[in-house]
């Protein structure tokens, strides 16, 4: 039984067909990774699931059809979102960014500060003055403050230094123990470490599904689907 089922999802933006009949399942535990070359529709898939892009088809989350529902309602139902490029509020402090994400009085500050102690130290600093890695920690921390049933995480290691990539991957590994993650990621080392299932998109359609280790162990398959070798 999957936590999220995407069936025949189509998205048209500005007259361009971005997704054409995308279907896949997200497992109720662990990390399912969404892979593909640049521009194949990975981010659009996450945005359509969350109601941020207009989609046609069917998306079932924990048994309920959610396509077309308003974004804030889906988030309140436990669909957490960490967008590409972090999207922290640059003019607000770290503490204010976190406070904004609170939905109940029992927010999980202990967990967030345990995973990212830097955020506690920099609570009064403006988020816009944080490094890329610290902003990513804040974006993840923001979503971990509340109880979620599925996290949609879009390229969390993009543009980060190798040391920070490891820290973010460590944090995601710990989070994945508690809540399933649908992860868009280009860094195959991170995919190899975290992912159980993999869905590969090509030209707005699902080109391959299966185990991530199965995909990455086949150098030729990886090369043909992603344009890079599995040793990258």
């Amino acid at each position: 039984m999957s936590i999220l089922q995407v069936r025949d999802l189509n998205v048209v933006l500005s007259g361009l067909s971005i997704l054409q009949g995308v279907s896949f399942d997200v497992a109720p535990t662990g990390v399912t990774v969404l892979l593909g070359r640049n521009g194949v529709g990975k981010t659009t898939t996450l945005r359509a699931i969350l109601g941020l892009a207009p989609g046609i088809g069917s998306v079932t989350f924990d048994g309920a059809d959610i396509l077309g529902r308003r974004t804030h309602e889906l988030v309140q139902k436990g669909l957490g979102y960490v967008p590409e490029d972090r999207c922290v509020f640059a003019g607000l402090t770290v503490a204010e960014n976190l406070r904004l994400a609170e939905r109940t009085k029992n927010s999980a500050y202990e967990l967030v500060f345990e995973l990212f102690p830097e955020l506690k130290k920099r609570a009064s600093q403006r988020a816009g003055s944080l490094s890329g890695g610290q902003q990513q920690m804040l974006a993840l921390g923001r979503v971990l403050l509340t109880e979620n049933r599925l996290l949609l995480v879009d390229e969390p290691t993009k543009g980060l230094a190798p040391k920070v990539v490891t820290e973010v991957a460590d944090a995601l590994a710990r989070v994945a123990v508690r809540v399933p993650i649908l992860l868009v990621e280009q860094n195959l080392a991170v995919v190899r470490r975290l992912a159980g299932d993999a869905v590969v998109l090509a030209a707005g359609q699902v080109a391959w599904t299966g185990g991530a280790s199965e995909l990455l162990s086949d150098h030729d398959l990886t090369k043909s689907l992603l344009g890079v070798g599995s040793h990258s």
Partner: peptide, 8 residues
Amino acid sequence: EMVTALGI
């Protein structure tokens, strides 16, 4: 958009 994506 990000405000709505935080459930607000």
